[in-house]
Design a protein around this nucleic acid. Structure first.
Ligand SMILES: [Mn+2]
Ligand SMILES: [Mn+2]
Ligand SMILES: [Zn+2]
Ligand SMILES: [Zn+2]
Lengths: 142, 142
DNA sequence: TCAACAGTTTAGAATAAATATAATGTATTA
DNA sequence: TAATACATTATATTTATTCTAAACTGTTGA
C-alpha cells in the first residue's frame, strides 16, 4: 500500500494490477536517473540487489512484455541470442560496441532523417532504426 | 570429386576442406538465381529436399559460421529469438515485415547515406545498418 | 599398397533463453 | 466473510544453438 501513483497508473494502463513485485520492477526501470539498456537476467539481478524482494523470472518476463506492448519499454534488435530492452522509448538509434557488448544511444537529432526511396505495395513503414556497429579505433595500424 | 572449383576455393579460403556436405551447402547458398535470407532450419530443409544427402545440423552451423567469419554470408539482427542469414553480402539495408516475418532487401542506393554526427572516443564505426519495420497499410482507417 | 593421421560428420547431450503450466497465494468485491 | 479473479512462483517445457565424443574418410608417405 502507498505505492507511487505514477507506477500504479502505468501498471493499470498495461492491464496489470499493482503488486509489490511489479511496483519494484517499475522502480528499477523508471526511477533511474538515466535511461538504460538491460537484459532480463540483469534486471532480475538489479531487483534482488536493491530490495529484499524475490521476483520470479516469469513475473519479470510478463511485466516487461506488457510494458513493451504498451510502449513503456522498447526491445532492441541485435544479432545476439539474447534480447536487449531499453527504457528510452524516444525515437532514437544505437551504437553497438561489439567488443564490450554494450548499447549506446544515438539521439534522433544526431542522425539525419533516414530517407528510404523504396516502398512495398500495401505496406507502410512503422519504424526505422539504425544500428551502427563500433570497434576499437586502432590508429597504430600502418 | 569433380566439385565446382569456385566452391572448393570458397571452402578452402574459409579454412574448410571441400566435402560432399559442404559443397552441397555451397550449391544451395550460392547457386541460387537471387540472393536470399534464411534460417538454419530452412537451409537444412532446402538441402534435404534438393538432394539425397543427409547433413547434420552441426555441420550446417559450423559451415555457415565459417562463411560469416570470412564474409561470404551476413547475419541479420532481428528481435526474434532466431538468427537470420543473408547471402547478399553487399552493403544494404532491410525492411522487416512483422506480419509475414519476412526480410526484404533495400539496396544501398535506395537509402541516402546515414550521417551520424556523434562519435565515441577510441571507437570507429564498422558498419551501419537500417532496419525499417513495415506493416499493412490499412487505408480504410478514418 | 596400406597403415597412420588429421580432419570431418554425426547423433546425441548440454546449455541457455524464453515460455507454459499448474498449484498456491493475494486482492477485490458483493 | 465468501466467492471470485488475478498473481506469483517453482518447475517443466520448448527451442535455438553449441558441445562432445565416437565413427568415418581422405590424404600421405613408407
Ligand atoms: Mn519478446
Ligand atoms: Mn538460445
Ligand atoms: Zn537506447
Ligand atoms: Zn538482405
Amino acid at each position: 500500500m502507498a505505492y507511487p501513483k505514477k507506477y500504479i497508473d502505468k501498471l493499470r494502463k498495461s492491464g496489470l494490477r499493482p503488486t509489490k513485485q511489479r511496483i519494484k520492477i517499475c522502480e528499477v526501470l523508471f526511477d533511474a536517473d538515466q535511461t538504460f539498456h538491460f537484459t532480463i537476467k540483469e534486471l532480475v539481478r538489479i531487483i534482488e540487489n536493491q530490495a529484499n524482494i524475490k521476483v520470479s523470472l516469469a513475473t519479470v518476463y510478463n511485466t516487461v512484455h506488457a510494458f513493451i506492448k504498451k510502449g513503456y519499454l522498447k526491445e532492441i534488435p541485435l544479432n545476439a541470442s539474447q534480447s536487449y530492452y531499453d527504457t528510452n522509448i524516444s525515437h532514437h538509434h544505437h551504437f553497438f560496441d561489439e567488443e564490450e557488448n554494450r548499447l549506446i544511444d544515438i539521439h534522433q537529432d544526431d542522425v539525419d532523417e533516414v530517407n528510404i526511396k523504396r516502398t512495398i505495395p500495401g505496406k507502410k513503414i512503422k519504424s526505422v532504426e539504425v544500428i551502427a556497429k563500433i570497434v576499437s579505433d586502432n590508429q597504430s595500424q600502418k
